[in-house]
Nucleic acid binder design. Structure first.
Length: 413
RNA sequence: GUGGCUAUGGUGUAAUGGCAGCACGAGAGACUGUGGCUCUCUUGGAGCGGGUUCAAAUCCCGUUAGCCACCCCA
């Protein structure tokens, strides 16, 4: 054998067995998205690197350390998308989709790329489904998304999930807060863990999220963002909570901070109980459309981590019934094929094998594959113008005349 | 990016530094147009590269990959 070529680090093949779950989740999610009036959008997987630098943020881990970035043959600096929101906003602006009369809802699905260290639930090529709402300014829209997200999780069978929510303020109030926080931290900087010392420089809000006990102690008396939120942000936050109450969605208010620069006001994440990783996360980004060259437009969105969701999901297991057709001999094959094709026209899943094997071998394979319905056509059956139908569950057999086959199957299936 | 653990047929697993074995799977047959049960036979393995040794799955170094924790995130 030649040397085997293997998939590169952090990427994987999704094989048919696994994909049954994926397709189930995708179907559920899409039907809910559409029920809420979201429309699909498809955007490129590669973009100018600058798009992500300007939106996600130059000093975020995603852009600084995790982005697949390269030059094309013309020397343009491109990147594999590490997330989708930036691209959707770019598309929204570029295609002049902004419409002051209408609030617009989009959903997307596809692979994202981050050069992370791989682990379970964490891949270099991973899949997200997500939504974005443009133009909805009130807290209702944040609430709608959280409601919709919870609905998807429930519908695919999760009972115990919990939302964490926070508000990180807007352009007006966030700087005042980070300034105060920075002063507070700098006065005590030697007491913090080494991670926090770095966070204090680059992404100061993340210090609040530190799990280290000593850091938490010191942070108890640190300025809290809640006290600094401006009137509008405060009001917005209350609105969100009001809608969550109306939708009866349980949530916890935490110090959640997300590692993307574009977020304003609401940020949220959801975890499935017993699992550390967030399966979905999102928030509001009221400045991003403007930053990327569009008119000032409020927006809010989230993304679901498909890999993580599917890893937590039991396999639905219920096999789709199919009919397996065995032809014995040339004449049987040429006379039987048109009838079989007719079944496919009627959307009856029919698998044909014609491989010069023994009947015994075919039946053994059928048994091991868990195939329940086998149709046999050989010389004996041909002379009776019938298929021999064998029910693999109990071994019973019956002849079904060619002309009745579609009707019988429609009733049976 | 940092630290740790792991790596044996397709899968799951054994073996004081001394013949790589077992189970399942897969293939053939017993049973040539009838599967499942049983029996027989067959198939196929040390991630990769070095080193130590008379001798390495076993010890050492490197590397690759997976997993775990951190970081971060979906």
């Amino acid at each position: 054998m030649n040397k085997e070529i293997r998939a590169i680090r952090g990427v994987r093949d999704l094989l048919p067995g696994e994909l049954k779950k994926w397709r189930f989740v995708e179907k559920q999610a899409v039907s809910i998205f559409e029920a809420f009036g979201f429309e699909e959008i498809r955007i490129p997987i590669i973009e100018e690197a600058g798009l992500f630098q300007r939106s996600v943020g130059l000093y975020t881990d995603i852009v600084e350390k995790e982005m697949y970035i390269f030059s094309d043959k013309k020397g343009r600096t491109l990147a594999l998308r590490p997330e989708a929101t930036a691209g959707v906003v770019r598309a929204y602006v570029e295609n002049r989709l902004f419409d002051s009369q209408r609030i617009q809802r989009f959903y997307y699905s596809g692979p994202m790329f981050r050069y992370d260290r791989p682990q379970k639930g964490r891949y270099r090529q991973f899949y997200q489904m997500g939504v974005e709402i443009f133009g909805g300014a009130t807290g209702y829209y944040d609430g709608e998304l959280i409601f919709l997200l919870g609905k998807i999780l429930s519908n695919i069978g999760f009972k115990d999930y919990s939302f964490e929510i926070n508000s990180i303020g807007c352009d007006k109030c966030k700087p005042a807060f980070t300034g105060k926080l920075s002063n507070y931290l700098n006065e005590r900087i030697s007491s913090f863990c080494s991670d926090c010392k770095i966070r204090a420089q680059h992404n100061i809000l993340r210090v609040l999220d530190c799990k280290n006990n000593e850091c938490r102690q010191i942070l108890r008396d640190a300025p809290g963002i809640t006290d600094f939120l401006c009137e509008e942000c405060r009001h917005h936050r209350e609105e969100v909570y009001k809608y969550l109450a109306i939708f009866s969605i349980p949530y916890r208010e935490t110090n959640l901070v997300r590692g993307l620069d574009y977020y304003t006001r609401t940020v949220f994440e959801v975890k499935i109980q017993g699992d550390e990783n967030a399966v979905a996360g999102g928030g509001r980004y009221d400045n991003l459309v403007y930053q990327l060259g569009g008119p000032s437009t409020t927006a809010v969105g989230f993304a679901i981590g498909m890999d993580r969701i599917c890893e937590l999901l039991e396999n639905p297991g219920k096999e789709e019934e199919s009919i397996w057709v065995i032809f014995l001999g040339e004449r049987a094959f040429s006379e039987g094929i048109p009838i079989i094709n007719n079944l496919r026209e009627k959307n009856i899943k029919t698998i044909v094998d014609y491989d010069k094997r023994s009947l015994k071998n075919y039946l053994k394979v059928a048994d091991r594959q868990g195939i329940k319905k086998v149709f046999i056509l050989g010389e004996d059956e041909l002379s009776k113008r019938s298929f021999l139908y064998k029910d693999m569950n109990n071994g019973t057999q019956q002849l079904i005349p060619f002309e009745k086959i579609v009707n019988i199957l429609k009733v049976n299936l």
